[in-house]
Design a protein around this nucleic acid. Structure first.
Length: 481
RNA sequence: GACCCCUUCGUCUAGUGGCCUAGGACAACGCCCUUUCACGGCGUAAACACGGGUUCGAGUCCCGUAGGGGUCGCCA
């Protein structure tokens, strides 16, 4: 394995090469992350290439989604984005040079003929592949009026070996590989040709990609050999499966990274989670970007597929939320709150949010949860109560009234005096603090769950707190009569 | 079907022949902390797919079986 590595003096160049046929899904995001980490940790370059040679399925929306996803994740690439289709002439030119050298040939078998060939092979239980029927035919036999494709004249004897940094050394008999199409009948290059030429021209030293490309590596190796080029280092990363163990595909639960953003996950949490999916470094779980670039290597990437587990992502996300800088957190949280509130937050409300955030962020696993837990601060009086809060108040009798009388006397609305007043009130009534705090919490927040009660009292302020308590007293009285 | 790959607690993983009566994390459960919920602390339960070898000794090496996955496009 080691002797296949390029010499130490060569700079590492990796690339992420998605096809713009949909959003940036979670597997692609991890592939991008691994490539980014590998290059960044080795003072190398990380390039982005959009594989848009399928003109029918490539969309600008998908390109935007991929760029947006990478940007949100914080994975920056070096230089300009390469659009593969813009290099089609170069790819075709290389195919023609192979044709001239007799290493490729024209094939006149049309789509129907090939389908028929495959169906028959399948029916007879034979391997399903092109049988090379035009490989050695004389050009004079070419039928008129049919545009041919160009196929590689691949070796039929021996075997093709790839040395993969993750999968190890694997060989396949050349008899298993058919002559791949290089140029379509309209003269445009296929993926197989384009990747090889681009990876070579871009000076890619390490190809880190999903395991679904593993068998492609054999065909690509044959192409590298036909061109007389050295192969880059291959590293095929096992795929990510869904929670049920089935393949995580776009139609089976795979989501775009923007969906994770909308669910309230932080990019640093998603990055940390993705990094640990299929890769490990001893017992390390919470891994900073700096540590990740320092530690990441292909030798520690596992060989088996991993299942996606939302619970662990959520746990990591909670950690990153708790440890977020408040100013930055407010910025990412604000859209979630305003979206739920249906309006923008005013200046003094922003101050309130900043003040309340430390108490709030302790208890949320996503920005969605965080936003919902913050909502009560901004809702107008009188507050609607959830079921449990209503139950707490119903069972508290005249407690609120007596408590309010006591709180009315507190002029210095800060933790010390408030704490003192409420505790004194509890002692006088021979009640545990919880018996008082819970109804108070219900009146103040409309819920049975919230940050510490003194924190809430202070953030809300004297006037608003007293007002909210009075609302419930009034409601109780009217209800009693 | 053919070719190739994979298999340690429910999940992600540590483990590269003796340090393993298999470690960590998430989830679960219990206890503590406590004004609720979280956080935090402590603890419990939980795995080397199976069968053969090799070896003084195997989770670690080899073979087979079973299960899972990937690929087999004029898609990428």
């Amino acid at each position: 394995m080691t002797d296949m590595m390029p010499s130490d003096t060569q700079t590492v160049v990796t690339r992420f090469a998605p096809s713009p046929t949909g959003f940036l899904h979670i597997g692609g995001a991890r592939t991008a992350l691994f490539n980014w980490l590998y290059a960044r940790g080795r003072a190398g370059r990380f390039l982005l290439r959009i594989e848009d040679t399928d003109r029918k399925r490539s969309t600008t929306e998908a390109i935007d989604a991929i760029i947006g996803g990478l940007t949100w994740l914080g994975l920056d690439w070096d230089g300009d984005i390469i659009f593969q289709f813009s290099r089609a002439d170069r790819h075709a030119e290389m195919a023609h040079s192979l044709l001239e050298q007799g290493k490729a040939y024209h094939c006149y078998a049309g789509p129907e003929e090939l389908t028929e060939m495959r169906e028959q092979a399948r029916a007879e239980g034979r391997p399903v592949r092109y049988d090379g029927r035009w490989r050695d035919r004389d050009p004079s036999e070419a039928p008129q009026g049919i545009a041919p494709v160009v196929r590689l004249k691949a070796p039929q004897q021996g075997e093709t070996v790839i040395t993969d940094e993750i999968q190890g050394t694997v060989s396949v008999a050349n008899s298993q590989l058919d002559d791949m199409i290089l140029l379509r009948s309209d003269g445009t290059p296929t993926y197989m040709l384009s990747v090889v030429v681009d990876d070579h021209d871009m000076g890619i030293t390490h190809i880190i990609r999903g395991d679904d490309h593993f068998t492609n590596a054999f065909r690509q190796t044959q192409l590298y050999q036909a061109f007389g080029w050295d192969t880059p280092v291959f590293a095929h990363v096992p795929l990510i499966h869904g929670p049920d163990g089935a393949k995580l595909s776009k139609r089976h639960g795979a989501l775009g990274v923007e969906a994770y953003r909308d669910m309230g996950y932080l990019p640093e949490a998603l990055r940390n989670y993705l990094l640990r999916l299929g890769w490990g470094h001893g017992d390390a779980e919470i891994i900073s970007t700096e540590e990740a670039t320092r530690w990441f290597g292909l030798d520690a990437v596992g060989k088996s597929p991993a299942r996606f587990d939302f619970a662990k992502l959520a746990s990591l996300n909670g950690h990153y939320i708790r440890n977020s800088d408040n100013t930055a957190l407010v910025k990412s949280l604000l859209p979630f709150i305003e979206d739920r509130l249906g309006r923008r937050l005013q200046g003094d409300e922003l101050d309130l949010l900043a003040k309340a955030l430390p108490g709030l962020k302790e208890r949320a696993k996503t920005l969605v949860e965080l936003a919902e837990s913050a909502l009560f601060y901004f809702l107008p009086r009188p507050l609607a109560l959830n079921e449990k809060a209503a139950g707490l108040l119903a069972g508290s009798g005249s407690l609120l009234g007596a408590l309010k009388t006591r709180l009315d006397e507190v002029e210095d609305w800060t933790e010390g005096p408030l704490d003192q007043a409420v505790r004194a009130f509890a002692e006088e009534n021979e009640m545990k603090l919880g018996k008082i705090a819970q109804p108070l919490r219900a009146a103040l927040t409309g819920s049975n769950v919230s940050p510490g009660i003194f924190d809430v009292l202070i953030c809300l302020g004297r006037k608003e707190s007293l007002g909210r308590i009075q609302d419930q007293i009034t409601k109780q009285k009217s209800g009693a009569v």
